[in-house]
Computed example of a mutant assay.
Amino acid sequence: MAGCGVGGLIVGGALASWGVTSQSIAAGRVEIRSTPTKMIVTDRARCSGCQRCEMMCTLKNDGRVSRHTARVRVGDNYNWGAGPGTGEGTFGEGDGACEFTLEHCKQCDDPACMNYCPVHAISCDENTGARVVDGGACIGCGMCSQACPWNMPRVDYETGTSTKCVACGRCAEQCPNGAIEFVDWEDIAQKVIDSGAVRTVTLVRHA
């Protein structure tokens, strides 16, 4: 996939089945984030603000429902949209009212949360590519949350440690409107092959 880029995948139609088009991205409706193993597609036009993603995320990761520690969040933008004065959210005015914006960890290449952690409790998971918190090392200082431009890590006051997205995909599985997709790179690669953009000639496996 190296060198192809997301733009090339869109032009080739490989991402169309996940609702990704150049027009949807240009309009700000669809956002794409990539990790070493996943492409995360969020479609704001499909989000109804039900917050089921928050509930299911915390049920799986914390064993309880907690909007505060949810790794994917709608509530932050529920009232104001992307920010006060934008005309979005339930308090907005005009055409932008009740347009909900889903927020999730961007799994940054150079994550501020990891860089500013004083005890180096955040690292990159080799299997998922997600930046994850080591609960045994975390001291709950909240520096990761303050450093993140999107305020995505949150300190769980019941455990005294920070929490953030581990790319488990539970939010996508339980979204009733299909507003979130965690797509394996293998699936995207197969789409590219099927479209004829790339062909496989030889598969070599090293022992």
Rank of each mutant, 00 (worst) to 15 (best):
residue 201 V to G: 14
residue 149 P to G: 02
residue 183 V to K: 01
residue 187 D to V: 06
residue 47 C to E: 01
residue 11 V to I: 10
residue 34 S to W: 01
residue 70 A to K: 08
residue 36 P to E: 09
residue 196 G to K: 10
residue 170 R to N: 10
residue 23 Q to A: 12
residue 190 Q to A: 12
residue 88 E to F: 05
residue 145 S to E: 15
residue 195 S to C: 09
residue 133 V to G: 03
residue 52 R to H: 02
residue 3 G to N: 08
residue 59 L to N: 00
residue 196 G to C: 12
residue 73 R to D: 06
residue 109 D to F: 06
residue 67 R to N: 11
residue 148 C to K: 09
residue 156 D to C: 06
residue 63 G to C: 00
residue 127 N to V: 15
residue 129 G to A: 03
residue 20 V to S: 00
residue 139 I to C: 06
residue 195 S to Y: 00
residue 49 G to N: 05
residue 8 G to Y: 06
residue 20 V to W: 01
residue 65 V to W: 04
residue 83 G to S: 09
residue 65 V to R: 07
residue 89 G to D: 02
residue 15 L to F: 01
residue 94 G to Y: 12
residue 65 V to Q: 08
residue 84 P to S: 02
residue 2 A to E: 13
residue 118 P to I: 02
residue 10 I to R: 03
residue 196 G to W: 11
residue 45 A to D: 13
residue 48 S to Y: 11
residue 156 D to K: 11
residue 3 G to C: 05
residue 190 Q to N: 11
residue 87 G to D: 05
residue 135 G to V: 07
residue 75 G to K: 12
residue 27 A to V: 02
residue 200 T to E: 14
residue 83 G to F: 15
residue 185 W to D: 04
residue 98 C to K: 14
residue 197 A to T: 11
residue 53 C to W: 09
residue 104 H to N: 13
residue 127 N to Y: 06
residue 190 Q to D: 11
residue 18 W to Y: 12
residue 6 V to N: 00
residue 162 S to T: 15
residue 8 G to D: 02
residue 115 N to T: 04
residue 82 A to C: 03
residue 148 C to G: 10
residue 148 C to R: 10
residue 16 A to D: 12
residue 50 C to P: 08
residue 184 D to N: 12
residue 135 G to K: 13
residue 47 C to I: 07
residue 24 S to N: 07
residue 160 G to W: 13
residue 46 R to G: 02
residue 119 V to E: 03
residue 66 S to Q: 04
residue 23 Q to I: 02
residue 159 T to G: 05
residue 27 A to W: 03
residue 112 A to N: 01
residue 149 P to C: 06
residue 189 A to R: 14
residue 121 A to T: 06
residue 128 T to L: 07
residue 109 D to G: 13
residue 110 D to P: 00
residue 194 D to Y: 08
residue 125 D to V: 04
residue 81 G to H: 03
residue 132 V to N: 08
residue 203 L to Q: 14
residue 19 G to N: 03
residue 147 A to K: 12
residue 117 C to G: 00
residue 31 E to G: 05
residue 197 A to C: 07
residue 63 G to M: 00
residue 202 T to A: 09
residue 107 Q to F: 13
residue 18 W to D: 00
residue 78 Y to C: 04
residue 121 A to P: 06
residue 51 Q to H: 11
residue 155 V to K: 12
residue 183 V to L: 06
residue 205 R to L: 10
residue 113 C to N: 04
residue 52 R to G: 01
residue 53 C to R: 09
residue 98 C to A: 07
residue 76 D to W: 13
residue 186 E to T: 14
residue 72 V to F: 03
residue 178 G to Y: 08
residue 112 A to P: 09
residue 54 E to L: 00
residue 138 C to L: 05
residue 76 D to I: 10
residue 107 Q to C: 04
residue 74 V to E: 10
residue 156 D to R: 04
residue 22 S to A: 07
residue 149 P to V: 11
residue 95 D to A: 14
residue 154 R to D: 02
residue 30 V to L: 00
residue 4 C to D: 10
residue 31 E to M: 07
residue 174 Q to Y: 06
residue 174 Q to G: 02
residue 21 T to M: 01
residue 2 A to G: 09
residue 178 G to A: 06
residue 149 P to W: 11
residue 100 F to A: 01
residue 189 A to H: 09
residue 71 R to Y: 03
residue 49 G to L: 03
residue 165 C to S: 09
residue 4 C to G: 05
residue 193 I to C: 09
residue 68 H to N: 11
residue 147 A to F: 04
residue 121 A to Q: 05
residue 122 I to P: 01
residue 72 V to Q: 04
residue 30 V to P: 05
residue 15 L to N: 00
residue 164 K to E: 00
residue 106 K to P: 10
